Computed example of a mutant assay.
Amino acid sequence: MPKLNGAPLDCGAALERWGAMVFRLAWHTLGCREDAEDAAQEVFVSLVQSKSTFRDEEHLQRWLVRCTIHRCRNLSLSAWRRHTVPLPERWDVPAYGSDPMDQSVSEAVGRLPTPYRQAVCLHYVEGYTALEIGRLLGCPRGTVLSRLSRARTLLRTYLKEEVL
């Protein structure tokens, strides 16, 4: 059983607190609701089965983000996924609002490469700073800033294409 500060971890409380974040990150990474649900479920099953001791809630949160990214990577590289044909409109993340422009932004984010999509999700949706994202992803702050900058450039290009 995992522990937090030496005491047994309430995994139900962890699911309540970080379940939505894990699911959103998986959804933005994989672009498919069903795969995101599977990945998020596997992350919390791993937490329940873990014998890790977490120093504090930030340590637990970082572990959940890293575990989510690893699960998504494993799922996207699996032989099963490489041999399946996606449905015509795979990127089904709902728009951030009811405005049609929000829908086009959501679709443009879905076209970004995975590392850029993860950085955008963690920064703009979850509200993390570049330094925090770097800690979560295990990369330097400068790399995160580059990914965000390149993602914004690609988003501008995608959105201009849509207007034309």
Results as ranks from 00 to 15, higher is better:
H70R: 14
R33D: 06
L30H: 05
S149Q: 12
R82S: 08
T114I: 10
C32N: 12
T53G: 15
A79Y: 10
L87M: 13
H59W: 06
L75I: 06
D38H: 03
I69T: 08
A26N: 04
L155I: 07
F54Y: 12
D102H: 07
L30C: 06
L148Y: 08
G110V: 06
C121V: 00
R90M: 02
T114F: 14
M101E: 15
F54Q: 00
F44Q: 03
L145F: 15
W18H: 13
E58T: 08
T129A: 10
T53A: 15
V85N: 06
Y128R: 10
S50Q: 04
C11G: 10
L15V: 05
P115K: 03
P2M: 02
D35C: 11
G19M: 06
D92T: 00
L145D: 12
L15G: 08
S106R: 10
R141G: 01
F23Q: 07
T153E: 14
L9Q: 02
R141S: 03
D56V: 04
W18R: 09
S98V: 05
W18T: 03
W27E: 02
S106Q: 08
L131Q: 12
L4Q: 02
R150W: 08
V43A: 10
L64E: 05
H83L: 07
R81D: 01
Y158D: 04
Y128W: 13
S146H: 15
G127D: 03
T29N: 04
A151M: 01
T53F: 14
E126T: 07
E89K: 11
D38A: 09
L159G: 00
R156P: 08
Q103N: 12
R55A: 11
C72W: 02
C72I: 05
P2C: 03
S76P: 02
I69Y: 09
S149D: 11
E162V: 01
E162A: 13
I69D: 14
G19P: 09
W18M: 01
Y116T: 03
V120M: 13
S50H: 05
R66Q: 01
H59L: 07
E89S: 15
L75P: 02
Q49E: 13
D38K: 03
D56P: 08
L60K: 00
V125Y: 14
S98Y: 12
F44A: 02
S78E: 11
V144C: 07
D102A: 07
A13I: 10
G19T: 07
T157C: 13
V105K: 03
E57W: 11
L164T: 12
E126A: 08
T157L: 15
V43R: 04
L154Y: 10
R73N: 00
H83Y: 14
R17W: 13
L164K: 15
L30T: 07
G142Y: 09
L145Y: 14
Q103C: 08
E132K: 09
G138N: 01
P8H: 05
D10Y: 04
G110C: 10
C139Y: 09
Y128I: 02
R24P: 01
D10C: 03
E58F: 12
W80K: 12
